[in-house]
Amino acid sequence: MTNIDLIASLKKIVKPYIQNEVAFENLTEETDFINDLKINSANLVDVVLDVEDEFDIEIDNESMEKMLNVKAAIEIISTKLNSK
């Protein structure tokens, strides 16, 4: 999977939880889930669980710790997919 594909999948996953449409439309690797997309921090858990389901991977706590923006999420998903 390329980063473009990963971002597209991630965009679908975060969509139900975002509270800033403009930031969502202009999503880039630098987009922050909480500060930019205004995702409620409790919903960030749902994003992590949805990512696990979608890619059939497990995101351990150390990885989750960094999952604050698109770039970190993409890196974590890629790493987990490659080690499958």
Partner: peptide, 17 residues
């Protein structure tokens, strides 16, 4: 709003937090 936004009984939810 919390009752509407999050399902705490969702599989994995409690374990993650």
């Amino acid at each position: 709003l919390a009752a509407h936004q999050s399902d705490w009984q969702r599989r994995g939810f409690l374990e993650k937090i």
